[in-house]
Each structure stands twice: as structure tokens, then as C-alpha cells.
Design a protein around this nucleic acid. Structure first.
Length: 812
RNA sequence: GGACGGUUAGCUCAGUUGGUAGAGCAUUCGCUUGACGUGCGAGAGGUCAGGGGUUCAAGUCCCUUACCGUCCACCA
């Protein structure tokens, strides 16, 4: 028997512990059917928010579904705990910037703080009923991940797919590191477009140039006009004088110049933007580094050196104005590339960086994308879009501290690059030396100080988790042979261009294989329409910890399961309440069922009454629909089908079977046994189905009764679709049953319209029913059910041509 | 500027291959029915963004316009 009220707080904790103690979600490599999930490791950069709960629960529901379909699930959980986001968290926490303390001290802080956060993350996901195998937990700063990252680097080096080069790279002056194209965000900023007069002495004329960045004037290395711009053709190849600074550069022509934009003449500085970089390369222009790595104008620029670039801009504009060079200013808003981690506009900096060659293999990546099944389909377009528009190789070195080191030294004498030995990995070149001296005989080495970007590691999650970097040769590594490609990569749409893309790159380069067969892309949770969840705004009612105080994990999960794959949804507390309603209803209907199943005998196979057969068949139909949707990872659509069935079941079927369950003395023992059989099968199946969405309450009910008969230790190890081999979908049975339900509904409608109680007795119910219908199946039993559900004393049947109709209702 | 979504009831959203518009919430009326008042029953509420086309038939397919969103490009 179940308690009158369900106590979620007590129950949820109890079953979470039970699952762990009994290894319910343990992965077994020897299973015949394995379903593997490449779980996204949340970035350890702050608190878990509702968006994580949303997308991770969608993943988790799929894991449960696949498990109950009979797969053993490889479902590791991980943390992305190295790299810039983590460093920024730690800097906030300790109140110091990384460069202000020693590297050792800073890294120690990082490890401590990330461990605290990870423990919290793990607790939170556990308390949401996550069915990950917690024995498979991984972290991107772990030794195993470091080893994989370094092995990846060595392998790429061997394959000539990674190189270092001293060239302009995207640079963040706030984080003081280079960054990759994928880490750019755009921000709209208001600025002035400054029209400046440049002197061309040879022609004794002025050329006007418009720029938003006059502080780059001292870095000007050329001026460009469009070759087709007739008004400016006389300027081509002439020398032009830079205002305020007096030095001269050449005027060149290039069709990248937009005649319509500004004045149609552009100054090229090293470096203001991507075009500058392209021109610098193409025309072999010199480099004048104006902005240093901290965002200051370099010291050797007279007057402006040492100023922050913004201050220099102001001062230069003022000076231009005073010297008569500034013709006019326009206020414009434009999009500026900023670093996604800190919002600082990016600069370009010439420095030595490591790159992975991706531009030469774009078509391989597109082809790989085509071989993976994308859910929803249209998300593949984002991937293709990104790959096709790549402009830079993948920069992986960062001038930071807490990350995986490059396993590399340079010979102090000849500068030769020395790689670590694979068997020594992971190594930290800062604290150890190469095992042999350099070919030139020198024994002194300069370690590579840079660390790898976190994506260089997280792009290896399949390889990390499949033990690619173990000492075994890949050919002998059964694990990787059996598990690659993994079944599923799940993540939200914002990291298609990073995590998904980079993982495909790495996997192809290292193994020649696809990392996974399927990819499911979930959406985001929005605070309001069009408003992302943001830490700055007060969204504390949405913080998972607070939600868990006010709602059960099951309710939160139930809400999360709604929504279509790939679509953003709005946070809504009302819908959480409606989840509670469902859970409450499930408890109550189970309570009712268990009350009537105390003497249920599973071995007795009673002759089933028509409406009992009907509900069993209807259930099968719903299950097929559920399967169809969940196989496409559409947990929300699956839930919808289930929900519809469930409420109809409670409101109609239970009302029909009730009288037979309560009154075997009137309707016979067989009538009750038939009802019990249907009740047992349907409630059990309802629980199994609901179990993938709301695992706690379903386990509670299962354990309190069904386990005695079913024997399986946990409902989560039972099979969800076995039902379909026992009960068929009989369309005509369903159609006729639906008609009977309609008919009973009409008697309710009659009572409701007459404002009388539903229990009110009907003296006579006159029904027109076609002979065709009345002969279909066991009609006497149907009449008994109709009569007792509508509380009718007598039914009069009148034959008719087709269908059915209520002719008359006579109340007592 | 490009790509991809979206526009359906007051609100949030479903609508599979074209065949009489659906759910939840909110609202109105009624019902203390032996699981449940966190309940039950009934009702009201929609030119499916606008326009055009294909078709016997279009929310659904095609074209087009407008607006919203996301990602990307545009930083002179």
C-alpha cells in the first residue's frame, strides 16, 4: 500500500542512494548491446544554471530510454576544468590575477577550487536523478586527459598537422593570451567614424580616409584604394604622408576596398582587422606593432606611447582636430569582435603560436558531418556553415597557466624543437627535461611555456573516455575497437562550431573514424522571450539549488522534458506546477490500482472483457508513438503522447473498470479478474514509461509492489518495449472502444448541462446502435460497463443504420 | 549582407506522409462521484502573420512580403 501523500524529498534521496549502492547504472563492456554517450563536460567556471539542467536532463532521458530498451549504457560524466574560463573563476575567487602570483601557487588554487565546484556539480546532478555511471567520471585537467592531449599533439606533429608560426593571431588584451576564431563573439558598440585628410606631396593633393581607429595611425603601413575607382586612380603608387606622424607609405590598389564605404580609401595598419592581415601577407608589408599585449600603445611611439588605446584614440582625435587634419566625424554603431570569455575587443598580435591545420581539410570535415545523423536535421547547416567559412587554422596555444602543457622544449643552442617521448606522458616541460641531449650536443633547453586551449583537450572526450592514450597500441585496444564510433554526442547549439567541430577534427586526424553516429542538439532556456539567462540579472528563482528546494527533481525533469529538440524554451514556474499535478495524479492512480491488486494473481489468465482489451491495445499504440519520437531523441513529443494517453486512461478507463473491481459479488469474480489483469499491465507499463522522465516516484511505486512479481531489482532495468510483444495494436478495437468512451462522455455532458451530480442515477438510457456495431465484440459486457459507469438502471437498444447515438436519457 | 529557425486560442506551445484546427495554463459554469479538490465534468475562445500559386482539398507543398530569434560575416 502507498502512503496517502507522496514524500518526494525522502523518496528521491532514498532511491538515488539505492541506485548507486546496487550499481544500477554501471557500465559493462562485455554487454552485447551497448549505447554510448559522449557527455558534455560542463565548464567549471561558476554555478550550474537552469540551462545546464535543461540540456543535461534531455540527454539523461535518452540514456534512460536506451537503457530500458535493453542497452547497457556507457554514460560517463565529466568536467571541463582547465583553461581560461576556469582561470577566470579562480581569479575571482582568490581576488588576484594569475600573473600576480607564481604559476605553481595559481595552479594549486585552481585545483582546489575546481574540486570544490566539481563536488557541488556532482551532488546537484545526482540529486536530479542522473543515471550516469559515476565510476566513469572524468576531468579535462586529469592526468589521463593531459596524457591524451599531449599524445594528440605528438600524433598531429608526426602527421604534419600541427605547426607553430610567428604570425598575427587574435589577441585578448584583458586575458593576455591569443584566442581562436571560435572564441569570438560580436558586440555592438557606438563609435566615431573619423574622416582624416592625408597629404600626397607628389600630386600636391589630399586624400581623405575614414577610420574608426585613428590610434592606429602610427601603425599605418599602406593606404588602399579600389583599382576600379576612377576618381582615385591618380593616387595609385604615390606616396602619402601620415598626419601627425609625418612618415610616408605607399598607396596601393586592391579590390577588397569598398568604393562606397567611407571615402573609398582605407589605411592598412598592422593590425586593425582581418583585411589588414590579408593585405600584409599579400603585399609583404612591414609590421608596425602599435598595441602591446596589454592593450597599451607601445612605448616607442612618441607622445602616445604608454597610453591605453582608448585614451590614445581620444588624444589623437584631439590633435588631428587642432592641426586641421580632421574633416568630420560621424557617430556609428558597428559590430566588433570581442573575446567571448571577457567581452574585450580583440586585437591582433604577432607572436609565435601553435596551430592545427584545418583549412586544408575542410572537405573531409564536411564529408564527416554528412555521415553523422543530426537531430534535428537542420542543425547540420550550422556546422557546414562554420566549416565552409573558416578563415584561420585552429590556434591552440594560450599564454596562460592552468592548462595542459605542450610536451615540447627548444634547444638553447640551435633552437631545434625537442618532443617528449610518448611513453613519458604526461610531462610538464617546465619541471623536467628531455631524456637526451639535442643533436647539436647541447644539453640546455628552453621549455615551451604556453598551455593548450581547453578545446584542444575537450575535443578529445571520446578518445579520453575510450582510453585511447592508454599504453596499449590502438590496434590491441579492445575498448576503442568496440566503442568507436560512440552512439551519441549530445550538446546545445552554441557549441556546434567548437566542441562538435573540434571533436570531429581530432577524431578524424587520430583515428580516421567518426567520433559518433548521432548528434542531438538541444536548445537553451530563456529567462524571458529573447532574453538569455544571465548571471547579472536576478534569475535566482531559476537557480537549480533553489528550484530543488521548491520542487521535486521529478517535477523539474518533467518540465525539462517538454519542448522540442533544438528549440529554446522559456522558463516557467507555472509549468513546473503542472508537472506536480502529473506526479500527484500518478501517485493517486497507483494508490488506487495497488488497492485493487493486493490479491492479483499473475498466473491466472482470465478471459478479458472488451474494454480491458481495448485499453491494453490503446496503450500499445501510445508506446509505438513514444518509440518513434524517442528514437529521434524527441523526448518532449514522446512525453506528449504518453501524457495524452495517461489522462484519458485515468479519466475514462479507471472510471469504467472501477465498478467491476469493487463489486465482484455483483458482476462476478471473472469480471474483476479481467479488470485486475488490465490494471496490472497498464499501470506497470505506465510506470515504466514514466520512469524515463520521472525516475524517483516510479521506482518508489515499483518497489512497493510490482517488484514482488516482476523480480527485476529496479524499474530502470526493466524493458520498456517488451509490452509490444505481448499486446497488439488492434485498430478496430481501439476505434470501437473510443466510441464507447464518447458515449459515456455524452451522459456526463447531459448531467453537467443539467447541473446535476455525475453520480446522479439515470433511469433509462435509450441508445441507437447499429447491428454491425452491436455484433462486433462481446456486447453484453460492454453494456454492463456503460451502464455502471454512467450509473444507469436500464439501457434500451434501438437498432439503426450505422454508428451509435444517444436517443434519450431519462433521469430518475 | 548570408545561413537556419519562428509567426497557430489571452499566455506557453503541439500539429507526423496535404483530408473537418489540438494540449496545458488562464477564464466561465457546474459537481463534496468509495485513487486524487494538486480533483472531476462541461463550455467559451482561432480568417493558423499578410499576399499569391499548385491541388478536388493547404496550418501543412511552392513563390513572395513583413516582423521576431539564433548563428555567421561585416570591424577601413
Amino acid at each position: 500500500m502507498l502512503e496517502k501523500k507522496y514524500n518526494s524529498k525522502e523518496s528521491e534521496k532514498k532511491w538515488q542512494d539505492f541506485w548507486i549502492e546496487n550499481n544500477i547504472y554501471k557500465f559493462d563492456i562485455n554487454s552485447k548491446k551497448i549505447y554510448s554517450i559522449d557527455t558534455p563536460p560542463p565548464t567549471v567556471s561558476g554555478k550550474i544554471h537552469i540551462g545546464h539542467v535543461f540540456s543535461y536532463t534531455q540527454i539523461e532521458i535518452i540514456a534512460r530510454y536506451m537503457r530500458m530498451k535493453g542497452y547497457n549504457i556507457f554514460f560517463p560524466f565529466g568536467f571541463d576544468d582547465n583553461g581560461l574560463p576556469t582561470e577566470r573563476l579562480v581569479e575571482r575567487k582568490i581576488g588576484k590575477k594569475a600573473h600576480q602570483i607564481s604559476r605553481e601557487e595559481f595552479n594549486k588554487n585552481c585545483l582546489e577550487i575546481t574540486h570544490q565546484y566539481e563536488a557541488e556539480f556532482k551532488e546537484l546532478f545526482k540529486s536530479l536523478g542522473f543515471s550516469a555511471d559515476w565510476g566513469l567520471i572524468y576531468s579535462t585537467i586529469s592526468e589521463k586527459a593531459q596524457k591524451a592531449s599531449q599524445k594528440s599533439f605528438l600524433d598531429l606533429y608526426k602527421k604534419d598537422l600541427v605547426y607553430n608560426s610567428k604570425s598575427p593571431s587574435l589577441w585578448c588584451t584583458e586575458c593576455k593570451t591569443s584566442i581562436a576564431q571560435a572564441e569570438l563573439d560580436t558586440k555592438e558598440v557606438e563609435t566615431t567614424f573619423n574622416y582624416i585628410k592625408f597629404r600626397v606631396p607628389e600630386l600636391n593633393k589630399d586624400l581623405e580616409i575614414a577610420t574608426t581607429r585613428p590610434e592606429l595611425l602610427p601603425g599605418c603601413v599602406a593606404v588602399f584604394v579600389n583599382p576600379n575607382d576612377k576618381s582615385k586612380s591618380e593616387f595609385i603608387n604615390k606616396e602619402i604622408e601620415i598626419p601627425l606622424f609625418g612618415f610616408k607609405v605607399k598607396i596601393l590598389s586592391d579590390d577588397k576596398v569598398d568604393i562606397e564605404k567611407g571615402t573609398g580609401a582605407v589605411m592598412c595598419c598592422t593590425f586593425g582587422d582581418v583585411t589588414d592581415v590579408a593585405w600584409w601577407k599579400e603585399y609583404k608589408l612591414p609590421i608596425k606593432n602599435i598595441i602591446d599585449k596589454n592593450g597599451f600603445i607601445s612605448e616607442d611611439i612618441k607622445k602616445y606611447g604608454g597610453l591605453k588605446s582608448q585614451e590614445a584614440r581620444k588624444l589623437i582625435i584631439q590633435d588631428l582636430k587642432e592641426s586641421g587634419f580632421l574633416i568630420k566625424q560621424e557617430v556609428i554603431t558597428h559590430q566588433v569582435g570581442v573575446h567571448e570569455r571577457c567581452g574585450t575587443p580583440v586585437e591582433f598580435s604577432v607572436s609565435k603560436q601553435w596551430y592545427i591545420d584545418i583549412l586544408n581539410h575542410k572537405s573531409d570535415f564536411i564529408e564527416a558531418g554528412n555521415k553523422i545523423e543530426w537531430y534535428p536535421k537542420n542543425m547540420k547547416a550550422r556546422y557546414n556553415d562554420w566549416v565552409e567559412n573558416l578563415q584561420w587554422d585552429w590556434g591552440i596555444s594560450r599564454q596562460r597557466y592552468f592548462g595542459v602543457p605542450f610536451p615540447v622544449w627548444y634547444c638553447e643552442e640551435c633552437g631545434k624543437l625537442i618532443l617528449a617521448d610518448e611513453k613519458d606522458l604526461p610531462v610538464n616541460p617546465l619541471t623536467c627535461l628531455p631524456k637526451k641531449s639535442c643533436e647539436c650536443g647541447c644539453e640546455k633547453f628552453i621549455p615551451e611555456k604556453d598551455v593548450m586551449d581547453t578545446w584542444a583537450t575537450s575535443s578529445l572526450t571520446p578518445l579520453i573516455n575510450l582510453n585511447w592514450a592508454s599504453d596499449e597500441e590502438p590496434e590491441n585496444n579492445d575498448f576503442i575497437k568496440k566503442m568507436m564510433p560512440m552512439s551519441l554526442r549530445p550538446n546545445a547549439h552554441d557549441i556546434i562550431r567548437t566542441w562538435d567541430f573540434y571533436t570531429i577534427v581530432k577524431n578524424l586526424y587520430h583515428t580516421g573514424k567518426l567520433p559518433w553516429e548521432n548528434i542531438m542538439i538541444s536548445g537553451h532556456v530563456m529567462a524571458q522571450k529573447g532574453e538569455k539567462i544571465s548571471k547579472r540579472k536576478n534569475n535566482s528563482n531559476m537557480e537549480p539549488e533553489n528550484l530543488l528546494k521548491n520542487f521535486s527533481a521529478d517535477a523539474i525533469r518533467y518540465w525539462t522534458a517538454n519542448g522540442r529538440l533544438g528549440n529554446d524554451i522559456l522558463f516557467s514556474e507555472e509549468e513546473l506546477r503542472s508537472a506536480n499535478k502529473f506526479i500527484n495524479k500518478l501517485w493517486n492512480v497507483s494508490k488506487f490500482a495497488l488497492m485493487h491488486l493486493e490479491d492479483y494473481d499473475p498466473d491466472k489468465k482470465p478471459e478479458l472483457w472488451p474494454m480491458d482489451k481495448y485499453i491494453l491495445s490503446k496503450m500499445a499504440k501510445m508506446l509505438r508513438e513514444l518509440e518513434l519520437n524517442l528514437d529521434k531523441y524527441e523526448s518532449g513529443l514522446g512525453l506528449k503522447a504518453f501524457e495524452k494517453f495517461f489522462w484519458e486512461y485515468c479519466d475514462n478507463y479507471i472510471e469504467i473498470v472501477k465498478h467491476r473491481l469493487y463489486n465482484p459479488d455483483i458482476f462476478g469474480k471473472e469480471a474483476r479478474e479481467s479488470g485486475q489483469e488490465a490494471l496490472y499491465q497498464t499501470i506497470l507499463q505506465i510506470l515504466k514509461t514514466a520512469a524515463i522522465y520521472i525516475p524517483h516516484i516510479t521506482e518508489e511505486i515499483y518497489q512497493s509492489f510490482f517488484i514482488k512479481i516482476e523480480k527485476t531489482i529496479s524499474i530502470h532495468l526493466t524493458r520498456i518495449l517488451d509490452y509490444l510483444s505481448k499486446f497488439e495494436i488492434d485498430e478496430s478495437l481501439i476505434k470501437n472502444g473510443d466510441m464507447i468512451i464518447d458515449l459515456i462522455s455524452e451522459t456526463r455532458k447531459f448531467k453537467s448541462e443539467n447541473n446535476i451530480s455525475l453520480r446522479a442515477k439515470i433511469k433509462t438510457l435509450e441508445l441507437e446502435i447499429s447491428t454491425e456495431l452491436s455484433e462486433i465484440f462481446d456486447f453484453e459486457k460492454i453494456l454492463t460497463d456503460i451502464k455502471n459507469t454512467s450509473n444507469t438502471s436500464e439501457i434500451k437498444i434501438i437498432g439503426c443504420e450505422s454508428g451509435y447515438k444517444i436517443k434519450n436519457i431519462v433521469l430518475e
